[in-house]
Design a protein around this nucleic acid. Structure first.
Length: 259
DNA sequence: CAATCGTCCTGCGGGC
DNA sequence: TGCCCGCAGGACGATT
């Protein structure tokens, strides 16, 4: 499940291989996943590739943007022939190709105008890695009665954390995911803030986490080596890890390390 | 306001 | 061995 570090990794790799290239033709194989209007756009060059939260954006000519969300299993492949999961194929002027693939068909790619972006992206909270502690604290203040882990995954509060990194940051901060936001002491909140910063940075450095479907363009990420609780039986201190549902989502945590 | 539930969709694992 | 069933999960809307 691509979260911020995985999307950031993919964005960086896409920049290396397709930024600046001219799109000759787009073939859409799954109309549910990919907006058919994309095939009708005038021939364009990929000017820039950016990320906002878990969204990935291809900025084309004429202020057109391909707004992409990978959800659970969306992924790109460069220079490989389409597979049964390919939703769209981008053919470039130089003869190379990029495929957008989606196994579970939850991912989306749509065409929007640059001008529409502020409005479309306005519900999103700040970028975790560009967010000061003061802003982080302010964001949490609006959710004092809510469950902490669910709040970390709420894209309107902070944009980019998903199920894996919410659990990992809480472990590192030593905080029980069942806690309510308002019960955090100042010291705990600071520790959580710093955990988010360091885990996301490290995960990006490691090329993301590869669990099941996620592969970046260059293959597997390496952060799964550093996971402390997610899908683990023991935490790094060899305590047994619990699993429970929080907000309907599987949650791993250590009863001894997280209070 | 917060939590829960249903929906979308497919692969996979458990059970028999 | 093979089939069927149910689960998982990000976002979002509807309901409790």
């Amino acid at each position: 499940m691509p979260e911020l570090p995985e999307v950031e990794t993919i964005v960086r790799q896409l920049r290396d291989v397709v930024q600046g290239k001219s799109i000759k033709a787009v073939k859409i194989l799954d109309k549910k996943v990919v907006d058919v209007r994309i095939a009708a756009l005038p021939p364009s060059t990929i000017q820039r590739i950016t990320r906002r939260g878990k969204y990935l954006l291809f900025h084309l000519d004429n202020n057109n943007v391909l707004l992409t969300h990978l959800r659970m299993s969306g992924h790109f492949q460069y220079g490989k022939e389409p597979s049964r999961y390919t939703a769209a194929v981008f053919h470039f002027q130089d003869g190379t190709l990029l495929t957008f693939n989606e196994i579970r068909r939850f991912g989306r790619m749509k065409a929007v105008k640059e001008k529409q972006l502020p409005k479309i992206l306005s519900p999103l909270g700040p970028e975790p890695l560009e967010c000061s502690y003061t802003v982080f604290k302010q964001r949490l203040e609006k959710k004092t009665k809510s469950n902490l882990k669910t709040t970390l995954m709420d894209q309107r509060v902070l944009a980019g954390l998903g199920n894996i990194y919410a659990q990992e940051t809480l472990y590192r901060a030593g905080i029980n995911p069942q806690r309510t936001v308002g019960t955090l002491q100042e010291g705990e909140r600071k520790k959580l803030y710093h955990s988010i910063q360091s885990i996301l940075r490290r995960a990006i450095r490691q090329g993301g986490t590869t669990i099941e479907n996620y592969t970046s363009l260059e293959g597997a990420g390496r952060f799964q080596r550093f996971l402390a609780v997610y899908e683990k039986e023991q935490c790094p201190k060899k305590h047994s890890v619990q699993k429970m549902k929080i907000g309907g989502r599987g949650t791993y945590w250590c009863q001894k390390c997280q209070k």
